[in-house]
Nucleic acid binder design. Structure first.
Lengths: 125, 125
DNA sequence: CAGAATCCCCGAGGATACTG
DNA sequence: CAGTATCCTCGGGGATTCTG
């Protein structure tokens, strides 16, 4: 440890949360359920747009397992299933708010940075 | 519109940010640069652990292009390159803080939810 | 040291049915 | 309607090697 040993970070303590909340499709799903209340399968499907039923099911199961959403089955014909954000899921509100604020404040800075980087025709190194 | 048309969400306004900040490897990189200051390529490589040089380079370029980090080349032998978080990157601080707080407050709730879901031997639907 | 160049693999996720 | 069941693609990322 007196050498040039770099202490491997304690795996970046926020990585687990990122995996849970920001993996593929989970953000739009949580966003939809958070902002538009209880919804049926097809509603989500249509609202999100490009997702296929298979993948939507996978993600919904995962989010349900993680306790972020709830699933309610109504034994009718035709069957009706409703998804709703849970208390734990709602607790992500402030996080989404922070994210949203950062977006409106800085997204164009990112765009600008990209433009500059691109037109500066990379004199590497 | 008077029909059962579900208005497709304005693409979940936070999705772009998620792509920029929470895509693969970017979180640990930003975290490392945010918490341990300016660092060389190898330092980052060792600190992050599992990443390969190729992918690390890719992600660093991307983050540099997005204006979240800066790259400084020192023409020496052996060459020395240092990466540092930019002002724009530092502006992510509050976001990371919120994320970190959510983690310490709710991560065990998620674990608990998973255990309950698993041991409840899925009576689908 | 800080990468660039190659080759290659594999599995998430898309497309396309089909069913209770 | 709310999913399963299959098949298949395709590109992110790993491993390895080379160089200024």
């Amino acid at each position: 440890m007196t050498e040039t040993t770099v202490v491997r970070d304690s795996a970046c303590e926020i990585s687990p949360v990122v995996d849970i909340v920001f993996s593929r499709w989970t953000t739009p799903i949580l966003w939809a359920l958070n902002n538009h209340g209880r919804q049926r399968f097809v509603e989500l499907e249509r609202r999100i747009g490009a997702i296929t039923p298979k993948v939507l099911t996978q993600r919904l199961r995962q989010l349900e397992r993680d306790g972020l959403i709830t699933r309610t089955y109504h034994a009718e014909v035709p069957p009706r299933v409703e998804y709703e954000i849970s208390a734990l899921g709602r607790s992500l509100g402030p996080l989404f708010a922070t994210l949203s604020r950062w977006a409106t404040a800085n997204l164009d800075h990112v765009e600008q940075a990209r433009r500059e980087y691109d037109e500066a025709g990379l004199p590497r190194p």
